[in-house]
Amino acid sequence: MKFLSQLEIGEKATVKSVNGEGAIRRRLFDMGITPGAEVYLRKKAPLGDPIEITLRGYELTLRKAEAAHVEVN
């Protein structure tokens, strides 16, 4: 099992499923992180966390803790 939080800079992946519950999970869905969506890890913040990803043609930042809910292929 691999998670969004484990991607390396410049790595591409496809979202497999989104775990977690409630508001955070819904937020991830609403921002377009749904099964099948392609994500690309663009960069990490200077202190290593949060991370910045490109998906559906825009840039999204989220913490590693939140990214750990997202399982990728």
Binding site: A23, I24, R27, L28, M31, P50, E52, Y58, E59, L60, T61, L62, R63, E66
Partner: peptide, 9 residues
């Protein structure tokens, strides 16, 4: 709070 934010162009 969770930090899931769009980074605008």
């Amino acid at each position: 709070s969770p930090f899931i934010m769009e980074l605008p162009t």
